[in-house]
Nucleic acid binder design. Structure first.
Lengths: 322, 322
DNA sequence: CTAATCTGTGTATATTTATACACTAGTGAT
DNA sequence: ATCACTAGTGTATAAATATACACAGATTAG
């Protein structure tokens, strides 16, 4: 009957609280009721939708896409960046910036960062990190060996070293090739104390930064400097591999794909990555879309940083097969 | 430069807080930052208008009119009720309901209520009050004497008595006419112990419920049962009186108008009313608009309960002269 | 009509949020 | 380069808000 009288009072309370910014106790005193009652009225105001709270996305942000990715892939966090054009260079630049900001904003003290060094996107991220005081990060651990090609080897080492310097951490390098010529060769290389010490840190990593690679002959060959024979590539694709993180391969459903090559890789295994507290993946671009899809389904990633175009592609078709 | 990255994170925090209903500490843990930072981000989200809170008025309520009246008359609270038609009967019924609800919702324990008995609107309010446990209200004090006409005298007494019974309070009646035949007669009447005891309670009243009357010959005569001579009426109107509360008169600017009649009224003086903690006025209707305007300007009213039509009229022209 | 249940309230208190403070690092002027 | 000033952070704690509890009145079923 007199429900309108009750709603009127609730509306007034909501107005005083939300628009006039008064404290509940103040409102309670003004209206001669207890603070508890005011609290309950405000709750009711929400329920009755007398107060409505809306979030307006600032331009350049895509909460909807992020939400879609979080929900469809069961991801704790997703970051989608605005991008002027759907080109690898533009995408990597933006993802790098966003990744760096996120890292800085959410970095805790005493962390041990693992970084896989073969990704240009990660390089862009490191470019955007501001130097911080020493001690915040304990170690920056290289989670994948360098390249056979000595110059790229250096490149990888530099990435780790630079990130370590910027974060004020001690770098822990993996002075070995990412892919050993053979199983036997790998065992020999693991005999090195320095290498072993670094690899023992893998289980201590609290934050891993990884790139995602697509198995796609041309780029793969370019990237690896012909480490893999065409035979090895076919072996992977035949087994269904669609992409890799630090040279650990998976298919479109996120299942790990193990081939003989796996035994030759000197770096963090997928199982170890899965145990890391926080795994941040940086990747975007049309060519990588399916690889990212598979990577997300491995369940090892906690935060994906990608671009708006890739985000839309990831959401478009989300059935199992591409 | 990377302001968008900051805003993106803020947006995400706002989303988790406002839409997903997560606690700040939970969000802080999720994003590896301190709860304090989350709190600050939420504040910033308000400032940047990333979160917007709107109040939607339920149908039948008029927060805008109430706000207008509060602001234009410097009133702590105003209640505007919906009314199907702009007729006295309809208006009184609705105001009565709303007044009763407000009274019940905001009544504290141990109050002493003063009630002026000549208003039909107050009668309607009392009709809508639900009986409550004894002791919540200490006394219900009649603040204005009855009428010369014995039947109406009874009416007034009954109002006070009924309100007292409903609120579980002890009634304190003023068994004297509202207007004594002369100054001298008044002094005699005040000699009565019972009357004096009630009048001594005037200063203890914590909540006064008053009606507002318009000086308008026909209704006045009808109301008063010809207590006033045409002469007395002219005296009032000549002095600028536009209305009254409990037979205490004021002009359109809210200045108290004192005439010889004032000395014959047996009831609470305006000065005493002004000292009461809370004065709730119930009044509406086209004929009373100017009287209400004046009453509000006396500065003695804390809460006005009126109807939508009168509210709009009150806001329409708000210069000094009608 | 009475018992049982449900609703709403204030008090006391637990939980949650905001902020004072101390400190670090960035910025700009001298 | 140095110093003052600004901006931002986490910790500790004050302030504000939500709720458990006990109780009172309303409502419903028997």
């Amino acid at each position: 009957m007199a429900r309108v009288n009750e709603l009127r009072l609730i509306t007034r309370v909501a107005q005083m609280y939300h628009l006039e910014g008064r404290r509940q106790a103040e409102i309670a005193q003004h209206l001669r009721m207890s603070q508890a009652t005011v609290s309950r009225m405000l709750k009711k105001a929400q329920e009755e939708e007398i107060v409505r709270t809306t979030i307006v996305a600032p331009s350049g942000t895509f909460p909807e896409l992020e939400k879609g990715i979080r929900e469809k892939f069961g991801l704790p966090e997703a970051i989608v960046v605005e991008c002027a054009e759907d080109s690898p260079a533009s995408i990597m630049a933006r993802i790098g910036e966003a990744g760096a900001h996120f890292l800085e904003a959410t970095l805790q003290s005493g962390e041990i960062i693992g970084v896989s060094s073969w990704s240009e996107t990660i390089l862009k991220m490191v470019d955007n990190i501001h130097p911080m005081s020493a001690g915040r990060v304990k170690y920056v651990v290289q989670t994948l060996g360098g390249m056979g090609n000595p110059s790229v080897q250096t490149h990888a080492t530099q990435l780790t070293t630079r990130l370590a310097r910027l974060t004020g951490a001690e770098p822990r390098l993996l002075s070995a090739p990412g892919v050993a010529p053979s199983r036997e060769a790998k065992l020999v290389l693991l005999g090195d104390t320095y290498v072993r010490e670094t690899m023992e840190l893998f289980s201590k990593i609290t934050l891993a930064i990884v790139g995602i690679g697509a198995i796609e002959p041309s780029s793969m060959l370019a990237r690896s400097g012909n480490i893999f024979t065409p035979n090895e590539l076919t072996e992977h694709t035949d087994a269904g591999a669609i992409g890799d993180m630090s040279l650990r391969f998976f298919d479109i459903d996120g299942n790990v794909v193990k081939t003989p090559l796996d035994d030759r890789v000197i770096g963090m295994p997928m199982e170890a990555l899965a145990k890391v507290d926080r795994v941040i993946a940086l990747a975007g671009g049309a060519a990588k879309t399916d690889a990212i899809r598979g990577a997300l389904r491995t369940g090892t990633i906690d935060v994906l940083v990608t671009d708006e175009f890739t985000a839309r592609r990831l959401l478009e078709a989300w059935n199992t097969t591409p």
